[in-house]
Structures are given as structure tokens and as C-alpha cells.
Amino acid sequence: MVEKKIVVRSQDTNQHRVLDRATRQRRLTRQLEALEKDNFQDDPHASLPQLAKRLPQFDESHESGKKRKKTRGDHFKQRFRKNFQALLEEENLSVSEGPNYLSACAESSKLPQRHFCAVCGFPSNYTCVSCGARYCCVRCLGTHHETRCLKWTV
């Protein structure tokens, strides 16, 4: 099934488009994933094509054929090139017993959800009808419509 990015419920004007729950959730997930990123810019070495071959790239698995002194544990290098997600799946925790990485995660809070304006960060009492973002005043709502709201693709 092909998922549509934005679901259009009512089409008279742009202002009346409403994002459905799944889309809102995807947006939040992408926002939270972005908070795990190491860098937002490109690798400064990536734009040097003729050098890229000679310089060790951090994703590259091996350096040139030069012989290095063999030290303790040298051979593990090749074995482990897995990212976090792959390692997690390999552990197969859903079927394991006792406390583990997944079960140790903090539960959700019993305290009520608090709301802050997506523009200025101050406490907010209103929700944008189109995308569910919070805002505190007409001015911030205006900024929100102009800058993010339906335009935003994180």
C-alpha cells in the first residue's frame, strides 16, 4: 500500500488542510530522530572527490594494503560493522527473560502532558487545527503558518 504524505480532508483553502494522526506521528518521529544525529552538515572531506580515495573515510571498512603491526584483538575490526539497530535486533530481546535493554527504558510519566508554543517556547493554550502544533498567540500562529505547519518536511 502506498502511503500518502499528507491527507487532504477539506480542500477549499490551504489553511483548511488537516494532517492525519499518522502523519503527525511520523513528523514527531522524524524530529526525534534528528535529535540523535551527529552532524547536520556534510563531511568537509566529502567535497574533495580526488582526495576521497586516499583519505580514510570513516565509513570505509579498510585502509590500504599496508601491513600494520598485529595487536591484540586486531581481527575484530572486520567482524563488527553493524549499526545500533542491527545489534539490537541480533540480541532478540523480545523473547529473552529478565531485565534487558528494552525493558530498562523508563515508563511514560504519570504527570500530565505540558504544552509549549512551537514558535517561542512559552506555555501555550492553543493547538493548530492543521498540524496539531501548539501556539500561544496570534502572532506566533502567523509565524507558524508561514514557516512550518503544512510546509514543513523536517
Binding site: 514527531l28 524530529q31 526525534l32 535529535l35 527504558c105 523508563a106 515508563e107 511514560s108 510519566s109 504519570k110 504527570l111 502532558q113 505540558r114 509549549f116 517561542c120 517556547g121 512559552f122
Partner: peptide, 30 residues
């Protein structure tokens, strides 16, 4: 301005930015 204390506040209310987990004191007591 509010950034000064709203940023470390994530340690006490992760749900403020949509991480549905307890903050440090609540998790500790739990």
C-alpha cells in the same frame, strides 16, 4: 531567555518534546 532552562528541563520532563518517558526524579522513585 526561556531556552536557558527549557533545554535542561528535558531531563525532568522528556515528554515536553514528545519523548514519552518519566523524568529523572520520577524514574528514580519508580
Amino acid at each position: 531567555s526561556n531556552e536557558r532552562f527549557a533545554v535542561p528541563e528535558m531531563l525532568f520532563h522528556p515528554s515536553d518534546i514528545g519523548i514519552q518517558e518519566m523524568g529523572i526524579p520520577e524514574a528514580l522513585v519508580n
